[in-house]
Design a protein around this nucleic acid. Sequence first.
DNA 1: AAGACGGGGAC
DNA 2: GTCCCAGTCTT
Length: 366
Amino acid sequence: MVRVQHQNENNVHICNALLSYYRKHARILPWRITPQQRDMGEMPNPYHVWLSEIMLQQTTVATVLPRFAAFIQRWPDFNALAGAQDEEVMAEWAGLGYYARARNLIKCAKTIAENFDGQLPQSAEILLTLPGIGPYSAAAISAISFGHRQVIVDANVERVMSRLCAIETALPVSKPLIKAATEGMTPNDNSGDFAQAIMDLGTAICTAKSPKCNICPLEKYCEARAKNIAEKLPVKAAKKHKPQRKGRVFAIICDGHIWLEKRAEKGMLGGMMALPDDGWSKAADGDGVAPKQGDWQILNKQVRHVFTHFTLNIDIAILHLPLRQGDVRPLITDKGNWWQLKTLDKAGLPTLFSKAVEEIRRHLSS
DNA sequence: AAGACGGGGAC
DNA sequence: GTCCCAGTCTT
């Protein structure tokens, strides 16, 4: 059909424009090789690609850069990461958010070390079976690491394709349309660079707000630009109201140290070291009840923190507890949980608890 | 199909 | 404040 033929030719032009843009303007990132290096037959380190893709899920490049550097320095390959203590990895991930990623990162590394001889499998189908690797990551890792032809759809691709094709159907209903449009445009060779080209374009030019259409290499192909609706796309479903929650965290202090608990593996902040709380992390306000009897002091300053599905205001309760000389036994609370004694340091804690520890230190030094 | 799941950066 | 981001997993 004429329509399809036209579509295909146009796709080739757009694809070439993107690859040309990437050749000239690709961001230099530590987990990438340049298009020129790829020309020379070089391939990126699959461990680096995998680690970066997991870290980049819902997380910006600027946030990932220092964390990626710390991880590859401490654990340079799958076997090293698989051999690490789980707690060390969780602590190194602290502050990055979405902690299920860290738990799955550990599981995935151990699977690769044990079942795949420390080598990342190449096929997207197998990658998809590994913990923490979904449809996007499986396609991206397979294409970028090993040059397999994959159709890669992330938030950048969704935005760029929605605009290129003037898709006015709202996400996520439009996802199949976007996937089909991307499939028709993805080259047989270099689908990894093609996707990364869209990501770089989406970050630098085809941005969510105030896209720079006047300097876009795809301007003449963009249907949304022609209709002057680029900034309105993609349409998204209305977001839900974010409820407010309140609660309390408890800090037992002894001699510059603090008792922390390891949270359950599942659920919020799962597997992370934490200040004990009064129940706010379980779908409701906290009850304010301390996990251990004593002369608790409530600090004046509250801590506010925004999670994905609720905002939280907590106060901080402090109890000074003398420690017998040399006594480092775990403290057993009235609820039967075990706490571990740690130095009063915000490192290795999720951001909410880092903020709380900051307040506690401020209080103690005043 | 919808909800759970962090945090930071841009405006 | 709002919106967004190289998503995945569970229900």
